[in-house]
Design a protein around this nucleic acid. Structure first.
Lengths: 214, 214
DNA sequence: CTATATATCCCCCTTAAAGGGGATAAAAAT
DNA sequence: ATTTTTATCCCCTTTAAGGGGGATATATAG
């Protein structure tokens, strides 16, 4: 059984090369090749391929946008992105949209062929550089950008309650300190975080993932 | 040049099998095999292997804990986890700790051999099921728990500025509407989010990852 | 066509928050 | 031993924010 392929690639020369190369192998059967993804719905419905090869940068509608539709029509399909781009944004958007593999054009076309076979087996083929980015996104997650704002333990306690949306009065009660003490801590916190008010502080903490632990 | 390996695996039978099998290939050279990671520091310093094969569940100290130390001593090393466990927790902890590959014992030992070669080339080998988990963690991330709070477009615009910590006056200016209009929108937002004030709203939005798009 | 939703604006009033200025006692650092 | 930091508390003043009550025009839905 050969793997049934559909290719979306706007560069005509490259597209024809892929069709020729892949078609010459008994393992692959190219059942469609298109210069854009405008009629992707019809193509999917009529051909129902095993694997789709998707360029990202195509006229009118980019490849990433087509992924959800493709997966909706043929859920068991495997999608391999084939692109020149290796920036994080396009990579993660592709993966989030449902891409199963990500191969860079700068690699040998052989890599693409391997990836097609791999993805069809249920694997997750991607160029080493790409795989590295994916792994890094894990390791980076517990990445505190931490500038250290040098908050004291008490200030951290206050701030932790503040970012829950509590009022100053409530925070004071919670920590069993006077209202004015709590305000005093807040003033110091604001100075250290270089913000003007509680809302700014909350925004800064939650968006910057400032570590509130010691 | 053969790939120089060190194995940490507490099951003696399996360990010896791996040594025999890997040693019989000219591509691999097993320069160490241990039943625990207690002396990992010394082993790394004296052997400086290309690739380490790490079991997770080992007596006294688990494999995951050893990863940072291994990478610290031999930064350019590749670490392949070889384990029976396929739960998310161990997987992600391993990846975060710095593992470069993750192979399940239930797969053929051949997979491990492939993985060693792959990881040494700079790739990210993992069993299909594992790769799937990694990909899912991406797709799941932008998964809004969304309860839909049914905010209008305008309300979303106001809320987006609010969670940046801006004042009502500033938001009004930004949206070119009157101060009172802005307050009116905020009141409606608070009602819809079931909160009492801006700080609570910010906390709710940023912690609940409420989707602010339409 | 009428009702509803949306977006806009205005007033009054109360409370919460922030900015400024203090003070004190204990602990930690120098 | 002296200074600095931390945590605590107080007063006064101004501003920001929120609750309540409106109104109006436009669009949209029933």
């Amino acid at each position: 059984m050969s793997i049934r392929l559909v290719i979306f690639e706007d560069n005509e020369t490259l597209r024809n090369s892929l069709v020729t190369l892949l078609g010459s192998s008994a393992d692959y059967e190219v059942i469609g090749a298109h210069g854009d993804v405008l009629d992707v719905e019809k193509v999917m419905q009529s051909t129902r391929p095993d694997v789709v090869i998707l360029d990202i940068d195509m006229p009118k509608l980019d490849g990433i946008s087509a992924i959800p539709l493709i997966k909706l029509i043929v859920p068991e399909i495997s999608v391999v992105m084939y692109t020149q781009f290796e920036d994080d944004d396009r990579l993660f958007k592709s993966l989030c949209a449902g891409a199963d593999g990500y191969v860079l054009k700068k690699n040998s076309p052989l890599k693409l062929f391997e990836a097609i076979a791999e993805v069809h087996k249920g694997g997750m083929p991607m160029s080493p550089a790409i795989a590295q980015k994916v792994l890094n996104s894990f390791r980076d997650k517990p990445k505190p950008k931490h500038k250290d704002y040098l908050l004291t333990i008490r200030e951290i306690e206050v701030l932790q309650l503040l970012i829950k949306g509590y009022t100053v009065k409530y925070i004071a009660a919670e920590l069993q300190i006077a209202y004015e003490t709590c305000r005093s801590h807040l003033r110091n916190i604001y100075k250290k975080l270089h913000v003007q008010c509680g809302k700014e502080a909350i925004a800064k903490v939650l968006e910057e993932q400032i570590k509130l632990i010691r």
